[in-house]
Write a protein that binds this DNA or RNA. Structure first.
Ligand SMILES: [Mn+2]
Ligand SMILES: [Mn+2]
Ligand SMILES: [Zn+2]
Ligand SMILES: [Zn+2]
Lengths: 137, 137
DNA sequence: AATCTAAACGCAACAATGTTGCATTATAAT
DNA sequence: ATTATAATGCAACATTGTTGCGTTTAGATT
């Protein structure tokens, strides 16, 4: 996605196309897998920490990025697909963390998981998988 | 599980049966659902924060409790079943968070999820579900 | 192109969470 | 009872996340 398209996307979601947002989205696209907050911060420096938190929050809120993984106070973020928008995040994919290279990636699953909990209302299901990725195997 | 059994369990896992550990395990048993760190801390006071972190860590390490849920820097812990031990945590159940009462609970699923990622090695799968529980529905 | 306004930014200050080192105390074996 | 080791409490520190506020920027309007 080039700079023009990104600007369009941001404005469509009622966000100003600021340097910070464009820079972050470009880096996330280039990265290939989900980025941890600390990696984002390194790549974005010298940015103010607070501004970064607020930038991430705004993109998250508008369905442009999503939290892919969280462990040991490290949150990983990934770009959302076309199914997400300002109204809601709709992810039916899983998130995989490789224990060797520590990469976190989004994984489309062949079979969609059907969960039945009688008398429960299910709004969201997240699947976290840990193991060894194809490249490290 | 009474105090004598708990002491046995702790010693079987090479942990000393200290007041802190017994107290925490009793509270977790009594609580009925997964406890958040902050709730644990309130119920355990006046305990030193560091001691609490180390107590939780030791019980987690030995397969006596497990992390059931994590979000917004709030970790929820639950007692492990008989399938966990010093060697490994083996959970095939899911974790449910009710968005009304904020309760986190362990849920056995009828169908076991079959995940196939070619050329990946899968060590652990966690399923997080959010919605409204039976009591709040 | 200049003007204007709400959104975004940078900074300071704070709060919460988690970690490390070390002296003291408790557990449980001898 | 004695003793070795594990656990505890405290201080100090590091990391992570939040709030308020004055300044700057995006982008709409004139
Ligand atoms: Mn994803
Ligand atoms: Mn559980
Ligand atoms: Zn890998
Ligand atoms: Zn509920």
């Amino acid at each position: 996605m080039d700079s023009v398209q990104l600007k369009e996307l941001l404005r469509k979601r009622n966000l100003k196309a600021t340097h910070t947002r464009l820079s972050l989205l470009n880096k996330m696209h280039a990265y290939g897998s989900a980025m941890s907050h600390s990696v984002i911060q390194k790549q974005m420096q010298p940015i103010d920490r607070v501004t970064l938190y607020r930038t991430i929050e705004s993109l998250h809120e508008k369905g442009i990025i999503h939290k892919a993984f969280q462990e040991n106070n490290e949150t990983f973020y990934a770009i959302c697909g076309s199914s997400c928008n300002t109204q809601a995040h709709k992810h039916d994919h899983a998130h995989f963390k490789c224990l060797k290279c520590n990469t976190v990636s989004c994984q489309e699953l062949d079979e969609t998981l059907k969960i039945s909990l009688p008398n429960y209302e299910i709004n969201k299901v997240s699947i976290h998988i840990e193991g060894i990725c194809d490249l490290c195997h």
